[in-house]
Design a protein around this nucleic acid. Structure first.
Lengths: 193, 193
DNA sequence: CCAATACTAAGACAGTCGTCCTAGTCAAGG
DNA sequence: CCTTGACTAGGACGACTGTCTTAGTATTGG
């Protein structure tokens, strides 16, 4: 693996900090200190300022999570197992980070809705990407209502991640995975409304 | 209705601003300007500073939403209808506020987890209060797995609120209510895992 | 070897933040 | 009337913010 560039280090550190502290609470100074990158390079690599950095961070988080979703469906045979694998993975990541790192986008999304058009749009695209990816995998498994179930998975992932963070416990995520299993089984017979 | 005191006006304005802009982005100056309350009274009524204001705001939001949950189960006969009523109510509130005002606590919770022990605890208490309230109502309706279903309702409410905000659409909330209806019906026969 | 470009260094800048303070206003009780 | 306490006015304070600038160093292509 090649040495990451300054720009790359800034972006990946941004993902970490935004997801731990949020957008507003993450400052350039804190970021360059954490990343060990030159303070003077900030506006060289990101002339659009903090907002541009955040867009890059959102895009990186998007592809990372997309890859995780794909892996979940590669390594598991059924929808319920794939979802459980993904949710368990998220629970582990949360626990490993002392319950400080939840969804990399949720905090940014909530902080900047209708405050920054650009960031809201970036978050929207990211969530849509994930949901479409889920939808495709569900369709491949022959599920009759992939759109509704994909939405349900997203809702449960985001909601459970929030609750898991607040409660310092992986339980919401494992529980939510169980609920998805029920929904998936149910809608195998009858379409989702 | 008696004229609200300065303190009360500050708290209710705080609920509005925290939920629209988040904790970090809401400043005392912005708050007193919005509330029309004296700038000099801030640290008289809240010697504990912004954190104490936030705790008061969280407590107010807790009882307000608790009341909404109770009303949902008073005005509807079945669990599915009550949940649908609550979620529709939330969707309306969201739309009325131009999709700026979602869950009054989610943003604060995500911003301050493990950054402010006090606020995290306050959010935790609030979420637990709601979930317990749901659980009691479900039990009264004779549901066999009130704990699991109450958790599912919380996850779906929070997740759907986030998605609804980002997408500027009530659809996630109506869809999530449908999913809860399925879960409720299913678990009427068999216990949740 | 030289020119041109990519990048770094370090700070100035104007603004905002939460907090705190002192002087002043006001109302109620004696 | 006077005193006592609750409350308001409005700004000072130092710390921090995102942004931008100017001077300097590496690095690359010819």
């Amino acid at each position: 693996m090649p040495e990451p560039t300054t720009r790359e280090r800034m972006i990946s550190t941004a993902v970490t900090l935004f997801r731990r502290e949020g957008y507003t609470a993450t400052s350039w100074r804190h970021l360059v200190e954490q990343a060990g990158t030159p303070w003077g390079s900030a506006y060289h690599h990101f002339p659009g300022g903090k907002e541009q950095l955040a867009v890059a961070a959102i895009e990186l988080a998007t592809v990372t999570t997309s890859a995780t979703i794909t892996r979940a469906f590669e390594r598991n045979d059924t929808i319920a197992e794939a979802v459980r694998w993904w949710f368990t993975k998220a629970a582990q990541a949360l626990a490993d980070g002392d319950y400080r790192a939840g969804c990399p986008l949720a905090t940014i999304a909530l902080e900047t809705v209708n405050d920054s058009e650009v960031l809201t749009q970036a978050c929207k695209t990211a969530f849509t990407t994930w949901q479409n990816e889920l939808e495709n995998h569900l369709r491949e498994h022959g599920h009759p209502a992939p759109e509704g179930l994909a939405a349900a998975i997203m809702h449960n992932m985001e909601g459970a991640l929030l609750m898991a963070r607040v409660h310092n416990s992986p339980e919401p995520l494992t529980r939510a995975a169980g609920h998805i299993a029920i929904l998936a089984a149910h809608t195998m017979m009858r379409r989702l409304p």
